[in-house]
Design a protein around this nucleic acid. Structure first.
Lengths: 159, 159
DNA sequence: TTCTAGTTGCGAATAACTCGCAACTTGATT
DNA sequence: AATCAAGTTGCGAGTTATTCGCAACTAGAA
């Protein structure tokens, strides 16, 4: 049950789409590749910018639609990185192990973190509550080591 | 280090605000109370609706501003519940122990989950990476037990 | 009571998506 | 290879969810 998700990720994207009655199009292909190659989280306009190098006519609405499908298929994950900049979202390709994201609320740097405890936690929850987890998003916010070392006073909060 | 956050929550809201140069206003007070009494996650318009029972002239912009301050002070947390309905956010008062939210992606029901493993996980991360966590948001999406029992075929995904 | 800096209500402006629809593809079928 | 139903896309026009500018209005230190 926990493993199903991992197997799923390995299935080629086209297969995954067809299993749900969706089609592989040039747009979805390029968008998925952009995220797989990026290795980091991109927001929708940035995905558009990069994908347009292959498909100049690509429209932002199509990017949003593709991100939505890929997200539902478990091929990509959505993040908000503590909304450090704006209220938008970021996307990244899934890898075989889920990881967590820590965003420094002072400098905005993002750290990706992995630990077996995360898998354990998910398994425990599935077992205890009789549910199955498809997406697990653990986002952390705080002060990174570098900023803490600077020993600045707590920042002012604007109204 | 891990405890600091808990102590903070217990400090009265007014104190917490003043420590950052902010003021306690009728608006912030009512908005904080609405969330503390609600016991569940509310979105901004719903917070407005409830708070207006005490402050009829309250404006939505003020609600957003108050939510932002309270969030930065660690008095409330922000969620998106897997964006099951729209791209907006939900807010809830913090309690002494963080909990996780599972949203069923079929029926939309939300389950709050607690386990000591979560605290353990955060402590481990703080120790390993030399950072301090102020906010931890673990959101899960999947199929709840009730929906799984209905044995329906995987839902169609619209483009 | 005074005074200064923080706040609020308003309406306008943005940001971040989402929709309707005609034209265009995909890929299963013949 | 040609056909065709159903899924998709590009557009531009919405919608939703916030955020801003600013003058009038407090909170709370002095």
């Amino acid at each position: 049950m926990v493993l199903a998700k991992h197997l799923k990720q390995r299935r080629p994207v086209t297969r995954e789409l067809q299993a749900r009655g969706l089609r592989m199009t040039a747009q979805r292909k390029v968008i998925a590749e952009v995220l797989q190659k990026a290795g980091k989280h991109l927001d929708a306009p940035e995905v558009l910018r990069r994908a347009r190098q292959q498909l100049p006519g690509l429209h932002l609405a199509t990017v949003y639609r593709a991100l939505e499908s890929l997200k539902k298929l478990g091929i990509i994950d959505e993040l908000d990185l503590m909304h450090f900049r704006g209220t938008g979202h970021y996307y990244e390709a899934r890898t075989d192990k889920d990881h967590m994201h820590f965003t420094c609320q002072r400098c905005g740097s993002v750290l990706e973190i992995q630990t077996p405890l995360f898998e354990k936690l998910k398994a425990q929850i599935e077992g205890r509550h009789g549910l199955s987890i498809r997406v697990a998003r653990l986002e952390l916010g705080g002060i990174c080591g570098t900023c803490a070392a600077k020993k600045e006073k707590p920042e002012r909060i604007s109204a």
